[in-house]
Design a protein around this nucleic acid. Structure first.
Lengths: 337, 337
DNA sequence: CTGAAAGCGCTAACAA
DNA sequence: TTGTTAGCGCTTTCAG
């Protein structure tokens, strides 16, 4: 008796399967006593209605998907945590997918979702590119999508993100105010969403303070520690920046390591500030100045949007961006000596 | 035309739905040309077969679930990353659930999976207790379960974990060798799985070196930073340990913070070693000695086990424990002064 | 309030 | 190689 069905239950109770079915939908006309009897029996036998059958019948899945480029940093952990919290509180299920920053993977994943598997998608985009057919197809199936942190700017989306340009501007300005003249900007991909926006903030701060924007001080590197350390080392040696704005956590960490190896003292020889959601920036040496995004909040809000649009189909094709304030935490790594 | 079906496709192509269906199963007898024609049309229309219908028909879901107690530390992030990698490579989907360390939540979640939603489960147990009916019920449905890191020791399970007792023994011994006489053990719950095992290692090291096991030096605290800092502060003040073994990452971090606040120098006044998968222990001040579990590997191996048992139903009710070596990294926080 | 029956979209015998 | 057909387990009109 591996798989019970409502028919088995009905038989045991001398009822019809429709009555049993009703007991599991909160709704409908059913005698409370009958319902109680059914649920008691179900409990005893450890029965619950087959998901696929109800999903097929009702054409909904009670499931959403999260698609993210990577799993490596605290930001995404916190965002997922926020999303999962909301999803679970709604009685929904959460699928998780990692693209490893490959748009190709993203497309494959998205395509595997368009056949009823999920009711909605929350994602952080994995590339630039202009081949967003997979997104469009999802939409054509009326599956709502909410983006967070990284989006495709050639597509109108509901998008929840940080005030990245402003935060980046302030971070850069902070370095300038602390005496930096040659500030480097480190990024994984300066053409995508956040990489670009954060660079804009950086550039504007330079401009405001009459500092030149120097291409040699912009390092567009890869998302892999060993490789980006090599790039950073080269940057430090050849371009001799006296300040660094790291657009993602990993690059801030790598910069600390490389500076140490190169015998450069932070903040005396070079000052550092980076985007990061790490909660132990006060314990590193020197304590690290950061732009801290409200990652957990961001996840919760993105999920809340999605559920709103699931409840009463909004027009999720409209561009609608929600911007959350990041916190700037200035610590020793960027202090004037 | 929101939802296409194989019947629509069949009609457009002048074929029958079974032929179309065959085109989507890798198998079966079908003319390659016909297949190509079908797939081309499907591609064009963005069609793929309805998941619920095939799952219902085939009574399998191509989906597994991960259930973990929390999302807060690097260990679980890495483990999930490992699991997701394997799952995706198998073309499976990954559901993720967080229990917040509540067995009650775990039971609810597990129960929601027993109706076909998943083909298998990978979990890290959320409690002690002896009410594991939810686990038994899952088994009675022939859904294989693999545990990692934390299991229920009154239930026979396939279990992938670190060599925690040995690692904890070594970590404790290391503190002793560096001169500690009053070593505290910090734990979230000394009665569960890893909390217990790691304490055993601690106790054995004390015994081997003729140090007394003192209850006042064992701090059983909670999984919340503010609260456990309070407890640690009290411990440091009242019991005056000269060494600390932290059984989880969060407690090691909290200890660093509290020691700093209390004006205690690490390692001069108090030495510290903790279980942690953080990759920046070399950057904190002082650099933190850690027991580093192979979390990513653990996730991959747990997933691999699950897929093996999915492929050819093993007897997953047998106790079978796989133990992975942790790495002990001795840094400044535990150095002899 | 409960039962009968149709059918959600697909797969897999079996038949052609 | 392709088509026909009978369900997978459930929900939901529609009758009673």
């Amino acid at each position: 008796m591996s798989q019970l069905t409502i028919i088995d239950l009905a038989a045991k109770l001398g009822l019809s399967k429709s009555t049993v079915s009703r007991a599991f939908r909160n709704s409908s006309d059913i005698n409370p006593e009958t319902k109680a009897r059914i649920l008691a029996m179900a409990e005893e036998l450890g029965f619950s209605p087959n998901t696929h059958a109800s999903n097929l019948r009702g054409s909904k899945s009670q499931t959403i998907a999260i698609i993210i480029p990577e799993f490596g940093n605290k930001f995404f952990s916190l965002a997922i945590k926020g999303i999962e919290l909301v999803t679970r509180s709604k009685g929904y299920h959460t699928l998780i997918y990692v693209t490893d920053h490959q748009v190709q993977n993203e497309a494959t994943i998205v395509r595997s979702l368009s056949n009823g598997r999920v009711d909605g998608v929350i994602m952080s985009a994995s590339g630039e590119g202009h081949e967003h057919n997979h997104i469009k197809q999802l939409r054509s199936k009326n599956i709502p999508i909410v983006f967070f942190d990284r989006n495709y700017d050639d597509i109108n989306t509901v998008y929840v993100t940080g005030n990245d340009e402003e935060a980046s501007f302030k971070a850069t300005e902070h370095l300038i105010e602390n005496g930096c003249k040659r500030i480097a900007y480190l990024v994984i991909n300066k053409n995508i969403s956040i990489g670009k926006v954060r660079m804009d903030g950086y550039a504007k701060a330079l401009a405001k303070h009459g500092l030149p924007f120097d291409d040699h001080l912009v390092l567009d590197t890869v998302n892999e520690a060993e490789e980006n350390c090599k790039d950073i080392r080269q940057l430090l040696r050849e371009s001799r920046p006296d300040g660094v704005v790291a657009s993602v956590e990993r690059l801030a960490i790598s910069t600390m390591r490389v500076a140490r190896e190169e015998g450069l003292k932070i903040p005396d020889d070079i000052k550092l500030i980076g985007f990061s959601c790490l909660d132990i920036t006060d314990l590193v040496q020197p304590s690290l100045s950061v732009v801290k995004q409200p990652a957990f909040e961001m996840g919760k809000i993105a999920a809340t949007y999605l559920f709103e649009s699931l409840a009463k189909p909004l027009n999720l094709k409209e561009q609608e961006t929600t911007i959350l304030e990041s916190t700037l935490i200035y610590q020793d790594s960027s202090k004037k000596s």
